[in-house]
């Protein structure tokens, strides 16, 4: 049995056109590839430190 109140909580106000710009700027665009590149660069630095 669906609970109306609970279901209603799942609906959120839609983004208006005026707010679109802020939403785009604030969007977190970090992807797995970024994280991998970051991790590999960290690993390279670690290797260099060890060699030194």
């Amino acid at each position: 049995m669906i609970n109306f109140e609970e279901e209603l909580k799942k609906f959120h106000p839609s983004l208006e056109v005026e707010d679109a710009e802020d939403a785009i700027y604030n969007q977190d665009l970090t992807d797995v590839a970024d994280m991998l590149v970051g991790m590999m660069k960290e690993a390279e630095k670690e290797d260099q430190r060890r060699l030194e």
Partner: peptide
Amino acid sequence: RLETINQTIKKYNLALGYCQ
């Protein structure tokens, strides 16, 4: 068209407010 879209969004948000 863009204005109409914005109006629909505002009305939807208003309807959600009425529901609450």
